[in-house]
Design a protein around this nucleic acid. Structure first.
Lengths: 122, 122
DNA sequence: ATCCCGCTTCGAGCGCGCTCCAGGTCAAGG
DNA sequence: CCTTGACCTGGAGCGCGCTCGAAGCGGGAT
């Protein structure tokens, strides 16, 4: 069972353009082709796309996702470095979350300040 | 007491280039000038820069920060819309935090998976 | 007096991550 | 046979947010 690029776009929330771009840029593992050269995405491809989408949505740059993909394509013996990439990324994301939470606190305080002024006599 | 653009860059963590760019793009309130045309930043300017930096670091686009700045410059009568902008932004940031946390959970699960494999006999 | 330094403006350039267009192939349906 | 439509490739274009370069000015130190 395999999917066309259009079906995969719907399933993943990416566009067909982006799927081709990711492949060109080395972010994908091997994508099968039909006899006529059309891309055929497997269930495994969908899982991989979900993974790199998680990395992207948490702010990992394309070049780092590419590096991770290269290691996965290289197969056995690269697990340690793959894990290090994810661990480093995890620390960055955690720090970002903390920072964002702090900024959000102050923004919320500003909203409360406006809410307080709205009740003023003026 | 006022600061030069270089001193303000150090205090805010932005570059002088970025401070000029923000002013050009309408993100600043009124910035004073010396008799020779050099920018002079006040304590109030620093607070404002801290505020817009919070908005930027939590992902608010430049154009929305500009809109917010325009309202602040317009003064009285714009508080309700300013608050609405911040409230809308707050919801976006909260949603983003949630999403990021979920992605992070799955990335951490992947790290654990690698950690488990590292202990394998292979 | 001359040098340097930090500031000024204007406008161009850049890195990122897509996004889209032109021109072509192939398969199915009328 | 001809059209339609989904796909293909290569390459150009774009929006965002800076970032930088060129050319010029004014003030303080040597």
């Amino acid at each position: 069972m395999s999917l066309t690029i259009a079906e995969t776009a719907v399933r993943t929330g990416l566009t067909a353009h982006t799927l081709r771009y990711y492949e060109r840029d080395g972010l994908m593992l091997t994508v099968d082709r039909s006899t006529t050269g059309h891309r055929r995405y497997t269930e495994g491809d969908l899982e991989w796309i979900a993974m790199i989408t998680r990395l992207r949505r948490t702010g990992m740059p394309i070049r780092d996702v590419r590096r991770y993909a290269e290691l996965v394509r290289s197969g056995d013996g690269t697990e340690a470095e793959r894990m290090r990439i994810l661990q480093r990324h995890r620390e960055i994301v955690r720090a970002e979350l903390d920072e964002t939470r702090q900024h959000l606190d102050l923004i919320e305080r500003k909203i409360e300040w406006y809410a307080g002024r709205a009740g003023d006599c003026g």
